[in-house]
Design a binder for these strands. Structure first.
Lengths: 215, 215
DNA sequence: TGCGTTCCATATCGAGTGATAATAGTATGG
DNA sequence: CCATACTATTATCACTCGATATGGAACGCA
């Protein structure tokens, strides 16, 4: 098994606020789960990365699976924080586009969420059932009804709501999750300008009439 | 150890032609690697799935990593078999579209390849380096030059070659790899008609002027 | 200061990991 | 029909996995 980068080792005496340790563990878990999948991620490496000891994971969270769910839920909460404003007033093209930009901006800063979702998306599991029921289905419904409203008022490209959902999650967000591969294939510059350019690309597919020229 | 009786003890698995066992192992490895990732897949489960014993993996392939590479290479060969015809004479829209249909048809029948690629795409590793250098980069170049030729003759949507590449691999092929998740979100029918409908969706994005109306 | 709760640190468990050595068995060419 | 080359099977190695037990250290509160 190949481990890329060294991580801070567990310290000795000084004590942290427990919430701080829990957050550090969740941060570390997001990185490890996103890199190696649920089965491939190890609680010892997660603890090491957080500067803690492995049994502390079972103390603060009940088990590895509970840690995984807490990690996913926390990432979704962080995303919701970025989308809260004007996501439900999505009857106008401007509001919808703005929500998409926020979503893609979040995906570029926290690619771990889309990585984890995609790792689970490919094979049935109780984790996938939980993920869809708890987090993905509500989002999917919101996007669907917002797109239906836009289409009803004659806006937007000739795409179904499900096609839009897949464009957003696969073409849109995976661009950032797959950055390690894409940077080996393309001359991709990772950073804010490239992220906005990709958002432009997505919006051009959804609203071809409105958006300016290519690139 | 007691070995008293030369009981007929029928060998558990009647002997196969070695190439057959190797192929069975590669089939099983594709499924396991695609489901659980490299770290999460176990050589014992792969062997079990192939009706073999775990040490036979190290006998026929040198190691788990060699097995992984052989698995990936075999899937790419199977894909090349489907694309061989007229993939290089891609100067016409018809040939290009036909190649895309073949690619997506293969992806729907063998989603394991795109699953494995996507598992590796998200974090740097020696496997990702090998995967890009050996298999992905040549394909990426072919698609890039074919699209450039089409665009030079005024065909195709206003997309860069890299955007087309991501549309094909992310939006196009991942539709089938992520079937377990999408079937929980959408009312998706998995089958040949649905696969062709998705191919239509991709081609409509690439050639909006040519393709017929939406759904 | 002293007590009680909360949290950390160490040791360890049984199960599972990939890999190898050694043996047992089968198929094939001379 | 046997000698030889292959392949299958068993046993086992050192290691890592997630989880738990236990004792002690650090804290809040009196």
């Amino acid at each position: 098994m190949e481990r890329s980068n060294a991580v801070p080792t567990a310290r000795r005496h000084p004590r942290r606020r427990p919430e701080h340790l829990a957050e550090d563990l969740l941060d570390a878990a997001a990185i490890e789960f996103a890199s190696h999948g649920y089965d491939g991620a190890s609680t010892r490496r997660i603890a090491d990365r957080a500067g803690a000891h492995q049994p502390q994971i079972n103390y603060h969270f009940r088990s590895k699976e509970h840690l995984w769910r807490a990690t996913v839920s926390r990432l979704f909460e962080m995303m919701a924080l970025q989308l809260r404003r004007q996501v439900d007033e999505g009857s106008s093209v401007g509001a919808f586009s703005d929500a998409i930009r926020r979503f893609l901006r979040f995906s570029s800063v926290h690619p771990e969420l889309n990585r984890i979702i995609n790792l689970e998306a490919t094979s049935p599991s109780s984790r996938l059932d939980w993920l869809v029921a708890t987090h993905l289905d509500p989002l999917h419904r919101m996007v669907g009804s917002a797109w239906a409203a836009l289409r009803a008022s004659g806006e937007g490209a000739d795409l179904t709501a499900d096609e839009v959902w897949e464009l957003l999650t696969s073409y849109g967000a995976l661009h950032f999750a797959n950055a390690p591969m894409l940077s080996r294939l393309q001359t991709s510059a990772d950073g804010d300008p490239a992220a906005e350019a990709h958002a432009d690309s997505v919006l051009r597919l959804l609203f071809p009439a409105r958006m300016p020229g290519p690139r």
